[in-house]
Design a protein around this nucleic acid. Structure first.
Lengths: 211, 211
DNA sequence: GTCTATATTTCGATAGAC
DNA sequence: GTCTATCGAAATATAGAC
């Protein structure tokens, strides 16, 4: 038999509290992904977490703070994939990494839904996720731009390939396929379609013998 | 000097009422485009229209009915462009029509924002615009699929071109470029980027001498 | 056709007990 | 850390006068 909570040593981490918080973030991710930020109430997150509304707001001072925690967690899960500590892939290898990312996302509809919903909502500068969305796009744009430029430098990608257009179009394909995938679950393969798109890019801009 | 309204002939169309309704639809389009459906209040639409909330709800029994009117008007403005009475363009000409549509949309941020916002929101089956969004995608998918297939039949597009993938990717590029265009106003040309994308498709799937 | 007034929920957030 | 209770604001929608 263990001591009741109030007799625990002060230095002990309150795991139960941490778990509640983590569960709330997971629940909020799911609800934000399906109903959006505006369309999700704090009460709904609390109920599905198994807390009262006040109990939830003990961990997050406001709804916006809850969103911030959700985005932070998303970045933590996804961040290492493209911008991790390992050297970023360059040239066509970067597109292969994006294909792998598409395959990975195909198993995580919640994170895809979260991004699609928030990217659309947060177009407005006043939206609490606006800065995050802008930074997300700036990040992947910069990452891919460097990869394409490096591909040119090493003679893998044609020197006259329009870097900006290729980068923007590639990002557009990923985003657009996600939208269709969410709308037609099971009928679309983001991975296969993106792979085919990369194939057309290679056919157009590869330097023969290196692609 | 004209008679006061109550003495007008009964059969006369009340233009002032029609105008209020039309203005409300225009205002709602703008607000739905920027703040989304969930994020826009009936009161906000009424205020910007110059009506009281009840005055607005006289024309539309509910907020969902207002949305329906907005979508109907959007379809009316856009419908004739791709699916009009004229014969639909076939083969590569269909992609040129899409380029023209991109150019046209570049002058109408409200309608682009409306679509991007609603397409993301209405992924959920319970959203009042869900059916509309699904029908919109089904429509453009069918339209483009027929065009590509016809391009094959007339020997314009390679017989081994993957129709479904080309169609889905093309739609994805349009949607994705719209998202980036909304997020980076002025820094992106949807038209130029889409045109370049069509160029890569042509380079890959054109039958020499006919593209 | 438009208004004022109001009914009814639901929202985000706070106060204070345990 | 979690709860009950509650506040104030904002939401959709309705009733009835003009």
């Amino acid at each position: 038999m263990s001591f009741p909570p109030r007799y625990r040593a002060k230095s002990r981490v309150d795991l139960s509290g941490e778990e509640s918080r983590a569960k709330a973030v997971a629940v909020a991710t799911e609800l934000f992904a399906t109903a959006g930020f505006k369309g999700t109430s704090v009460a709904a997150v609390a109920a599905k977490t198994g807390l009262s509304q006040s109990g939830l707001l003990h961990h997050f001072p406001s709804k916006a703070a809850l969103l911030a925690a959700v985005l932070e967690e998303r970045d933590r899960q996804d961040g290492d994939f493209l911008t991790g500590t390992t050297a970023p892939p360059l040239g066509w290898a970067a597109f292969d990494s994006l294909t792998a990312l598409a395959a990975r996302n195909s198993t995580r509809p919640h994170l895809v839904g979260l991004f699609v919903r928030l990217a659309a909502e947060a177009v407005e500068p006043s939206h609490p996720a606006h800065t995050w969305v802008q930074q997300h796009y700036a990040g992947i744009r910069g990452w891919l731009t460097e990869a394409v430029q490096a591909g040119k430098d090493r003679g893998e990608i044609a020197a006259d390939a329009p870097v900006g257009t290729v980068v923007r179009t590639t990002i557009a394909v990923i985003d657009g396929l996600q939208q269709q995938w969410l709308l037609q679950p099971g009928e679309v393969s983001m991975t296969a379609d993106f792979e085919a798109f990369v194939g057309t890019l290679r056919a157009r801009w590869s330097i023969v013998g290196s692609g």
